[in-house]
Amino acid sequence: MKRLKYLALLFLFGCEEVVIVDLPSEQNLIVVEGWLSDSLGNQPIRLTRSNSFDAENPIEPIIDAQVLVQSRIGELFSYSHSKSGYYHAETPFRGEEGREYRMLALIDTIEIRSEWDRMPNKIIISGIQSFSFQENDPNNSDQQITIYYPKVTAIDPLGTRNFYRWIFFKNTEILNDIEPITIQNDRLFDGNIIPNDFQGFQYEAGEIMTVQLQSISQASHDYLSLLRSQLTTLGTAGGTTPAIVEGNVRNLEDPTNQILGYFGTIAISQDSVLAE
């Protein structure tokens, strides 16, 4: 609703312009990005440092850190730097359902650690179908074009709180320019089919529509929810006020020294269908 206000007015009279603004000085904060999945792999974790918003150079990777992932039952998984701040597990592994994991890293002399995150139960996609609708061709208003979108069938387990994230792929490319973060909370459909009428993720005939349903923890959902609000609604009248996107990673020596980003677990279910 609140974003639509912006859309409505923009269509009428609105305009955008890139401007130069005198911004406050940079904080150079450590950023963690990692999702440990239940699929066998080297479970990448990325470490970077933030830089000034108006800096002309891209963000800097951290390449000389020591990184570990630990499970609650005492397993340790060593990581080594690959490239551009990405660290890979030296031995491929998968996260086990119901087990808690966390990440630890030593960056120069700074020791950081994430909160424990429990690997959720995987929710199986039992079917996928291709749907379509007609609309005006944006390049030629006299013509109609057919837009395809996928819809999967997956049942939410009754009686437990479940949180989901959806990822869409067009052929092999990730499709996230419509909505970078698509998440759900089963409060409104507990025990029912998970609603997924995402007509905004649009495909043309002949393209392969791949849908990933990721089960995530409540903490991960909350983090992504806050991140989404800061990515998509800032600056609109109905948008939330700008805020620090607090993650689950802490500086062990000085907790007031902010660490950005998140390390969490995901259980992935995936299916594909041809747009036709």
Partner: peptide, 20 residues
């Protein structure tokens, strides 16, 4: 509220707001 920093999370460029 102006951002002090930018960072990347999942290929999304995220503005960081330290002060309101």
């Amino acid at each position: 509220t102006l951002p002090t920093d930018k960072y990347v999370f999942e290929n999304n460029l995220v503005p960081h707001f330290q002060f309101r």
